[in-house]
Simulated assay, not measured.
Amino acid sequence: MRSIQRKFTTENYRDGETLACKGVDAPFMGIVRSGMLREDRPTPQGRTHLLALTFANEALAPQGCVRAKCTLTSVGETEVMTCDQRTFEELASAIPRLQLNLLHLIQDQLAQAQDWQLLLGRKTASERVASMLVSFHQRHGRPDEMHLPMSRADLGQLTGLTLETVSRQMRALEKAGLIAMPLPTRVRVLDAVALHELTGDAPARVAA
């Protein structure tokens, strides 16, 4: 890890700052060490649409974001490690395990992307919101309380729902005792098993 840290560039971003990854100079590889990044794409109407979130300890490919004409923005105080392609290839040659670890990380994130497409394509509104919260809780490391500094409109863009529907579904989960929301941007998962049951996924996928 020390070798990787010496080769990677570590940068800290304040809330709302854009990741410096423009054009051909965009970093090849990135890892979010703390905080969170949001990926937004401009719409033909001149607005932006939230496509994805990258949590702490997840990898990202800034060049791919640039090709898709997306913007990466920090959510809260965020620390990101990046490197260029040549540096990463040198590291991978010196540390063969790095390539395998990266492959496993990418496979996990591809599986998450597939799950998200299933969420948007086949699930009901209640299943979408429950699935989103379960996913966020797992990717956060199953903390006692999650910090989600995003609006209900943002969450609606992620789930393909209106902000009113997202708000209604989250209030229903809170009323049922599955979650608690001490603040609009704070969520406590009180019953992870029951919340997972509402996702419509197979029981075998519930984390132990």
Rank of each mutant, 00 (worst) to 15 (best):
V187L: 09
R186Q: 14
G64L: 13
F88Y: 08
K175A: 15
H137D: 02
K175M: 11
R142W: 00
S93L: 13
Q114I: 01
L133Q: 03
Q138K: 00
T73Y: 02
P27T: 05
T124I: 04
I31P: 05
L120W: 02
A94E: 13
Q45A: 14
T162Q: 11
D144E: 14
N57L: 01
F88A: 03
P143H: 05
E79S: 05
L50N: 01
G160K: 06
L190R: 13
E77N: 11
Q138H: 01
L60V: 15
K7D: 13
V206F: 07
S93H: 10
E89G: 02
S126H: 14
L148R: 05
V75C: 04
D154Y: 03
R171L: 09
H104N: 09
K123A: 09
L51K: 15
A153H: 15
Q169A: 10
S135Y: 01
E145A: 12
L19D: 02
N101S: 14
R41V: 15
A56C: 00
P42C: 04
F8C: 15
M81L: 07
E17D: 12
G64H: 08
K22D: 15
M181T: 11
T199F: 12
W116P: 04
V206E: 08
H196M: 08
G23E: 13
A92V: 12
T159L: 04
T165N: 03
G200F: 10
T124W: 09
V193L: 14
V32M: 04
R186P: 03
D144P: 12
T43M: 03
A92R: 13
P143I: 06
R33W: 02
P96V: 07
A26K: 13
P184R: 12
T71R: 14
S135T: 10
M1S: 13
G160P: 06
A180H: 08
R67F: 14
L119V: 12
K7V: 12
L72S: 01
I31V: 15
F55Q: 00
V75H: 00
G156H: 10
T18M: 11
L37R: 07
V24Q: 11
L120F: 03
V129P: 07
A52Q: 11
M36Q: 09
T71M: 11
A202N: 09
R6T: 15
A94S: 15
Y13K: 04
F55E: 00
L50M: 01
D108N: 06
T9H: 15
H140F: 00
S74T: 06
P42T: 10
D108S: 07
P184L: 12
M1N: 08
T48H: 05
V206K: 07
R6M: 10
R186H: 13
L110I: 09
R33V: 05
G156Y: 10
K22G: 15
R86K: 06
H147V: 10
P27I: 03
L195N: 11
V206D: 05
M181D: 01
